[in-house]
Structures are given as C-alpha cells and as structure tokens.
C-alpha cells in the first residue's frame, strides 16, 4: 500500500509492483485533501472512537456479567438471545436504525454511529465478556455481594479487573470497527461533513486507475492512526493476554 502510494499518478496501471518507485511521488499525500476533507473526517473518526469504545466496553462488560450472574433458564435465554441477535444480517438493521434515530432526532451528527455503542455494538462482545466472566469463581461474586457491594460495585471492583484481557480485546476490536466502518455512516449519517474518514476513503475507492496512487496515499493516512495506536498499546495488549 505504501509503495503503491508513492507511484506517479496518471500513468498506466503497473503490471507488477516496483520495489521502490523511482521517483517516489511523496506529493500524492499532499494531494489527498483536494479530494476529501481529510482533517475534518479524521477528527470525526477520532471523536467517534473516543466516545464509542469506552461505552461499548462498559455496556458489553455489564451485559456479560449480567448473563453470568443470571440463573438457570434466564441465563440460557440471554445467551440464546445474544446468539440469535448475532445471526441477524446487518443489512436487516439499516432501515430500523435510521427510522429510530430520525424519530429521536439523533440522526446526522458525527456521533450518530457511536449510538450503536449503547447497544453494545455487536452481541459478540457481550458473549466474549460472558465467557470471560464465567471464569470468575461464583463464590467470589457471591461473597462480594454478601459483603454489601452493589451490582455496580461487583462489576467495577471485582469483575472488571479480573477480565482485563477481554476488556483490552473488546476495546481493540471495537476501536478498529468504529475506525473502519463505512456502511453504518453511509446509511445513518446524511451530511458528508459528519462522515467518518472510512466513508471518505470509500468514496475515493472508485478513483480511476490512473489516480490509484492518490487513493493509496489516502489509505495509508487512514490506516496510520490505527497502526500507531496498536504500536503504542501493544505492550498493554500482549501483557493482558499473556499468562502470568
């Protein structure tokens, strides 16, 4: 992708990939903002991730703990419901979401897509937390309750520290989801000024072949923050998933 972004535009599509383009066309990067408002879209995406990821982690971890602490039939019902919701095709939800958010007056803002986080983003994260919480000894949760901890206290002081790997995993997965989603904003957000950067990149994807280096330069710019975030957070990520 990086090598492609340094190719000279307005040339015939290459047959292969040069090891290093000669000359390297760095000016492709400065051309990108002429095709999409890059800074604004990047800020929209950043805002989206900063708001949606913590909400997703909180909602799904609470839901996961609720499933684990439920008893008998209720527990099976909640797990079954989550699996069922996971089977619903995403396309089937596009219209209901738009109708609901329009009725609430919440459509067409940079944070509209972040509202999905209030529903946990995807039931998969809920099931992930349910699996993680199921490994917490039941006696520990009961003892905490007997000691007078509220359900919030049990979640905050007992469950959350013990499922840290799941927290990191869901944060990473949902962060990537909100950074790269374009179908949700395409259907939910009307004004281009409120779009995230992934949708802006999507609109560049139909550039003519001769201009692909500029599209690839945009792709590098859009990918870089996610790669950078992983580079910064990798120690924490690997520490959380490694066995002590």
């Amino acid at each position: 992708m990086v090598l492609g972004s340094l190719q000279r535009p307005l040339q015939p599509p290459p047959d292969g990939l040069d090891l290093w383009p000669n000359p390297a066309e760095w000016s492709n990067y400065s051309t990108v903002p002429r095709f999409m408002p890059l800074t604004r879209l990047l800020l929209n995406s950043l805002l989206l991730v900063v708001v949606a990821v913590p909400i997703t982690v909180v909602v799904t971890s609470m839901a996961g703990l609720a499933i684990v602490t439920a008893r008998g039939r209720t527990r099976r019902l909640l797990v079954g419901l989550s699996v069922f919701m996971l089977l619903v095709p995403a396309a089937a939800l596009w219209v209901p979401r738009v109708v609901l958010l329009r009725a609430l007056g919440l459509a067409d803002t940079p944070l509209t897509v972040a509202l999905l986080a209030l529903a946990g983003t995807t039931p998969f994260y809920v099931l992930l937390f349910a699996l993680a919480c199921s490994r917490i000894p039941g006696a520990l949760l009961e003892a905490a309750t007997l000691e007078g901890l509220s359900p919030y206290g049990v979640w905050r002081q007992i469950a959350l520290p013990l499922v840290r790997p799941a927290v990191v995993a869901v944060a990473a997965l949902s962060g990537l989801f909100y950074w790269s989603t374009f179908m949700d904003p395409l259907t939910l957000v009307s004004s281009p000024a409120n779009w995230p950067v992934a949708l802006g990149l999507r609109s560049l994807s139909e550039m003519e072949a001769a201009l692909y280096p500029i599209y690839l330069a945009a792709a590098v710019v859009v990918t870089a923050p996610a790669v950078l975030a992983f580079a910064v957070g990798q120690r924490s990520f690997f520490a959380s998933v490694e066995r002590p």
């Binding site: 596009w94 329009r102 395409l186 259907t187 009307s190 609109s203 139909e206």
Partner: peptide, 20 residues
Amino acid sequence: VTVARGDHLTRLSTAFTSGD
C-alpha cells in the same frame, strides 16, 4: 452528497425506506 457508485443505490434505497 456524492457517494461511490457502488453505494449509491444502497444509500438511496435505505433513505427512501426510512423516510430520509
């Protein structure tokens, strides 16, 4: 609102169905 050609009908259909 300019969208990629491949997304044009998807967005139109959703927008019409949802009254937007």
